[in-house]
Design a binder for these strands. Structure first.
Lengths: 334, 334
DNA sequence: AGCATTTGCTCAATCGATTGTGCTTTATGG
DNA sequence: CCATAAAGCACAATCGATTGAGCAAATGCT
């Protein structure tokens, strides 16, 4: 055993005294210097580590954050998770990571699990189409959304301005003189996708440009399949492609090559997402980069400030619902 | 409230009876059909969810696995984590993810945390140079190593055969007629790196080939810096480069380009790691791919079978220490 | 000396589950 | 009709911490 009881027995003090010493409440309860020293020392030499489970049960604080993403196998979310996990660790908290795999039921299960495990806060890339469930959870456990949000919600979120990003990208294509533009989109129900689509279409308003938007997933296959079916028969239907994610981009490039079309020459291409690899493709891919680190930091800080406010009985800080502007990184693919 | 007590009050039965019914031990304790139905029904309509923290405290089983990687921001480990997390989820378990950031102290802290949180098992990509600490933990909590292992250890592990992979890659380069080969390595203390280096050197034994191994991290910067300093002054010191990871590869390519050297023509290049992007570089990169999914599956299954054996008081199953052979994926970069 | 205060600690309840033991009540057998 | 067994459930301890309340001894004050 290595618990309060054993230390109490060892030192001759009671469990409560030991507890108060080791939680730093010694002076508040007027524990003698002698007791403090003896207890601290025995704890050290026994290498005592408090049982976090018991602590959680008693205090209702687990020092754990639940992180929920829709697909950890997607490099975008893997990167995002990595950043967030390290920021959480820097605050002395731990992370329970769950993957909803783009499905609402798995999302709900994960959230239930978070609750049952008494996480102190939740950071989520939501999949559901309605905010109500998360808003309800937020009454008990602070929730901050990242990357995706709901149109009207009382939940705080930090996303990048997908509308603006897509609009900028599209306008860039127009400025380059492209006249027939194909957008390949990701999950249509997700807010980033909807916003990118809106930005794409708005940029094209009033322009004499042929365009279309196809696709349904942030995946390599989707990019591949859409290009194959749209360019079927070797017709050069479009002179530019706007890929809504790097994964889509890869699939699209692959398909273009298999059709014998030269990327950047026959078909200009522009992408969304950050990915170090994009600079190493030939041609290097012009893209809309999202400030992931900044967004993550804002989200994590917001979550912790809400947690702190609630701990102290204060009202939640001002509702943060921020759209961070992305950056157009110009290379040579269009 | 939404606990056993409230359901007990609601139904008029005692907490213990409710517990036994809801944990499926009804017949074992001869609970009447009437009681079973009433309790099950009330639990359902109250949407009762057992408190996993309390359950863990009492049973010492958390249904949680601790996953420890040395750098979640590295795409390789991000992918690996993603695969493992989903496999763990499929078994009905949850994942606590920690990042040791290649440092032994952070690794130890994470492991301490796993213990304090009563994880049922640990999957780790170890950073420490000695196995003793992990072996000690393994006496209480099953530990399975993945990707990295220790030379002599009683711990089960699933790694890819890095020696063979590097040897094969190097022999491939030799077969192509390269005479001056530069290896850029990653973390020198890590077993995969040591094995790759060994394979590299063994392949060169008895060959009239000039070679060197430089570098110290699985990072883009390392690849970049090593190439710059080795090729300093525009001299074409080596006609081929063996990058020990995809990240190193990127840095190297970047540096080569900045020096005006054509990848694949002036300098042949071969890499380690799987990464979908490698096929899209120009030229597509010849590489040693590791069967990550297979390795993960083996590791997870092994962990769970050990957990099961111990639960039932059986001895651990046969010690699994497997090196899975990697695959050489031939493209056009050398 | 006598009372109040401070010091230094212990007791015991509590969080929400699980589980060994034991107590009624009803059924069974002879 | 009584003994025994089985059925059906409740009691209370337990996991390892935290925490409000309270008690005895030491000290201060007049």
């Amino acid at each position: 055993m290595n618990n309060l009881q054993s230390i109490a027995a060892e030192t001759g003090y009671s469990v409560s005294t030991v507890s108060r010493v080791l939680t730093g409440q010694a002076e508040k309860f007027r524990i003698s210097k002698k007791a403090i020293e003896l207890i601290t020392e025995t704890a050290r030499k026994c290498n005592y580590q408090p049982d976090l489970v018991a602590q959680t049960l008693r205090t209702k604080k687990s020092k754990t954050i639940g992180l929920l993403v829709p697909g950890i196998d997607n490099p975008f979310f893997a990167t995002l998770s990595g950043i967030i996990i390290n920021m959480i660790a820097a605050k002395g908290y731990h992370t329970l990571l769950a993957d909803s795999r783009e499905t609402e039921t798995e999302e709900q299960q994960a959230l239930q699990m978070f609750i049952a495990r008494k996480v102190d806060g939740i950071i989520s890339v939501p999949v559901a189409t309605s905010a109500t469930y998360l808003e309800q959870i937020n009454r008990d456990i602070p929730v901050v959304l990242i990357d995706r949000h709901f149109r009207k919600t009382t939940l705080p979120y930090v996303c990048t301005d997908n509308y603006m990003g897509a609009k900028t990208a599209t306008e860039y294509l127009l400025g380059k003189g492209y006249k027939r533009i194909l957008a390949i989109q990701g999950v249509p129900t997700s807010m980033p996708n909807q916003e990118r689509l809106r930005g794409f279409k708005d940029a094209l308003k009033g322009q004499t440009v042929q365009y279309a938007a196809v696709g349904d997933a942030f995946s390599v296959e989707n990019g591949h399949d859409q290009v194959l079916s749209v360019f079927a028969g070797g017709k050069k239907q479009y002179d530019a492609i706007f890929a809504f994610s790097a994964t889509i981009l890869l699939g699209a490039i692959d398909a273009l090559r298999s059709l014998g079309l030269k990327v950047g020459e026959d078909v200009g291409i522009i992408s969304y997402d950050n990915n170090g690899f994009l600079d190493f493709l030939d041609p290097a891919v012009t893209r809309v980069e999202q400030p992931l680190r900044e967004a993550s930091e804002l989200a994590v800080d917001t979550l912790f400030s809400i947690m702190e406010a609630r701990r102290e009985g204060r009202p939640d800080p001002d509702l943060l619902q921020r759209l961070i502007p992305p950056t157009l990184v110009v290379r040579s693919s269009c």
